[in-house]
Each structure stands twice: as structure tokens, then as C-alpha cells.
Design a protein around this nucleic acid. Sequence first.
DNA 1: TGTGCCGGGGA
DNA 2: TCCCCGGCACA
Length: 550
Amino acid sequence: MSTGKRLAKRSIIGTRVCAPGEDGMYYSGVIHAVKTPASMAAEPGLSITPKTRYSVRFDAVSPGGRPPNPSTEYSDSDLIGPGFGSVNGAKLVPGQKVYLTFNGREIQAEVTQHRENLDEVDVLIAPSGQEGTVTLTKRIEEVRLLESRKSARLADQDTDFARLADMAGDRKRASSHSIDVPHVIGSRKRRPSSGNDSERSYGGGERPLHGCGREGCRTNERGDCMDECTAALVLMSLSCSPHSPHNPLPLHCQHNYGSWGGRSGVVVGSPGAGGASNSSSSGASWRSGTPSPPLSDEGAPMTPSPWPTPAIPSSSHHHANTQHNANTSGSSSCSTPGSTTTLDEGIVLDYLGEQHPRKKKAHRMVFQCTWPGCLDIQTTCAAIEEHVRKLHLGPKERQNGDDNEDDDMSNHEEEFYYTEVALGCHTSSPPTMSHRDMARPPHEDPEYQKQLRLEAVPVENTTMPIKDRSNTFNVTPSPSSPIKHIKLSPRTLPSYMPNNGLLAVSNKMPASPRRMRGETKKCRKVYGMDHRELWCTQCKWKKACSRFGD
DNA sequence: TGTGCCGGGGA
DNA sequence: TCCCCGGCACA
């Protein structure tokens, strides 16, 4: 039975925190007692003073660990967690277990070195889907001592309390000894749109600094800019047609909907492949691999049919009837620039202004492997995929499973490790149809895309695999066209992005995960109350907008 | 006050 | 699971 009221604040008891053990490592646990001196102990959690001591019930520790004595009491400065200190101020010793977001999912890592002067930590990870371990250098604020256990829906938003624990903690309350009631899991308290909001669980923010130089593309104090840029650039190269011939969803949708190689329940809230199902209303949809919401209930997404679809009813002027027959011979993953991509719920991205799907390509495409250290070039899509598969991914990556989307997800990983390179083509950006401009998100603006292309050139002048291999983001050196093709791993999409994450790309990347109100483009605003039928399902249900969601 | 959307509930 | 909506947080 629900009262209909939600608690705005909760006791600090139960808050997950980390406390230092005798070995210098931090161990996670839950506050189970708060002791405030003198008269203020009546209401734990609300009467906290600098002298308050906290008892922590530590989680089970793996063999070899030396958790602190459970009877140890800590002051707030000892603890790391929501409402307490942040990992920024912690000295991480080698062997310290940390969590970080890698390829859109949270993984556990082990600190090998902490360079306090640089605020960097070297961590050892064993990414799923890869053999062996990988050493990453992370910013200290990118690692978390607490495993994120928030709901799936929240997992891709910045309310990752673990991050808040590590990040927001000191940023927000460093100046005060009085402990505000922490951000508690499940709390519906709105996130402040302050600086710490930039702490998103970026799916691919594993790279070191890699600024794109675009002002609107803030690097989030680190290198996460690439994700946003990449996502934005993908708009221009949605020629990354879905791999599976029978899977019509745009790439981002597929990946966000799909499963991600099922790590058995270690980490809740680590959207793997896409890491971006923000709009999931059930909160568990991506965990179960179930698309949520369905692609469209009124829109006209690309149909599974491999042949051209019938004309789309003109009930919506947003639904351009420019479906492109993507069933070109050969691998469907070989994209065709200029195809009109239908995004979520009927929104058609007519990127690059190409209105003529059958327009002959005036250029020749080759395919370049982007696996780190490998720049092998093949002339066919199949060849490069084979190359990637055999040389880099290994045969195990390939299993003949076309029976469901999940298989598609995992079976086409090679797609992410090569890039299509055009040799001497020219892509112009004619103005788009004006009636579509009416509801065009900024990223669909030809001017914006043009700007993106211009800006991408100096940054990615050569094919350059990025450290995080999932972000296979390449711009060819072709002189005639700044950007020919961009392969974007599904994991590249920032995890805060909704299912149709691409639509969320804006020419202004706000520091806040939520758009500022003024710039919010939600279905309600775009279509108005009068055209509620055009709203995305989520908006209709008063859920997080899946179309223009951020 | 309008908006976004969480959480819950009914069908 | 779909759909709706009360109500909270926020601008």
C-alpha cells in the first residue's frame, strides 16, 4: 500500500560507504549506526555533527582482504560515500578494488598505481569479451569505490550514487562539516544541475583526454567529450546500417536494446552494449535485454523487411517517406552513405541532407581495420570483417546465431573495429526539407553537422584508433571529404543516452545530464499537447522522453 | 505554474 | 507488459 508520498530524505543509516581498512584499502559497507555526541542523537541521520561517529557494517571481503574491525567508528572524513568524502581525496593502494565504467558497463578493477599528483590511477581490468587484462589509466574521479547498485534506469543517468559518492561528495560538501542527507538510492530527489552533474556514466569514457576542441562539447573535465562528439558524428554517418539484415533498428537502438554478453549479475546497472536505455520505464528492461519501450507505437521505424517499405502514411509530417532500401547486395553492414535513417518513433534523420537514397556513390570505399596497432585495409566489408574476426577477435567471437537480436549484438563485434574509408567522394549538405526543420533537433541541423565535420578534421586527421577500442572512431584522411565514415561502437554511446541516444546529441552539451529547461526539446514541447499522438510512448506515459531525451 | 518524469497501480 | 496518472522536483 502506497501512501503516494515519497520520502524526500532518509536516514543516513543504510548508506553505502567505504572505509579504510588496516591495509590501506577501502572496504565497502553500510552505515548501521550513527553516534552523535550529546543531545542530538535522537534522530539519526538528521542530527549530524562533525563529531558524529559512524559504525559501518562491512561487506563480505574476498579472501586475503583485511577489512577493518567492525567495531571501528569513523568520522565523516574517514568515509567515502554519498554524503561523505570522495575518492578524489583518497589514497588508493595497489590492489584496491575499484569500479569504473568501461564500455558502458561497470566493471571491477584493481588499482595498480595511484599517482596522486596527477590524480590518476592505473587500474587493471578484465573487460568482458576480451581475454586477459587491460591496464587503464583513469582519472581518480572516474573510479568508484562503491559498486553501483542503482536501478537500471538510473544507471545511465548521472544519479549513479556511487559516482556521487566519489565525486559529488567532496565537491558539494567539502566546505561543510555538517552532513547533508546523502543521495540515497531510490531517492527521487532531483539532481542539482550543478557541476557535479557532469558525472555521467559515460559508456566509453575510458580514454584519456581527447578533447575535440569544440566548445559546445565539453570534455567533462576529462576526455569524455569524445563520446559526445562521437555520438554526434554518428549522426552524420548513420550509414552504419544495422548489421543484421533482419534487424532494422538503427544502430544505436539495437545496441541499446540488446544484451551485452551477459556477465552474470555481478554488476547491476552496467548497460553494456549500449548502456543507454535511459528511457526504460521498467528500470530493468535493459538488464533483461528486453527493449523498452518498443521502438514505436506510432512512428515509422525502418521495417524489418529487407525490401522497401510501402509509403508511410502521411499522418505525421515528420515521417519522411524516404526509406532507403538498405538491402544492397553483400553485407548489410556495409553502409551506404546518404541513407535516410529513421530514428526513434518515426523521426527521420535525413543526415547530410542526402535525399536521394539511390544516388550513386561517386567514391570508392575501402575498409580499414581500426584495431589498435593494425591499420590493415581491405576492399570489401566481408574481408575486413573477416580480418577483424580472425586476427583480432578470434573465432570464438563468431557464432552463427541469427536467431535473435542478442546474437546479433554479439556476433557483429567486428563491425566496431573497422572503418569505412572513402576514397575521393564528395558529400554535400544541401538544405534539408524545411518542414522537417520544424522539429529538428540541433544535431539534425545541416549547419551543425557541417560544423561538426569541419571540426572533426583536425582532431582526427588520420585513422586513429582510440585507446578505448570500443570507440572506434575514425575519420579518413581523404582530402575531399573530411569525414567519410564513422564506426561507432554501441558502447560508445554514452550510457546516459536513452535508447535513441543519437537524438540526444545536441550542439550544446550541457553539463547537466538533464537539459536545461529552456533548451529542453521534449515531445510535449515539440509537438504540443494538440499532437499528443505524435509523442513518443514514453512521453505519453509521462516517462522520460525517449525521443529527445538527454 | 508548466514541465519532466518517477513510482505505482490498473487492465 | 502496456498504459495511465498522481505527485514530486525543478525551472
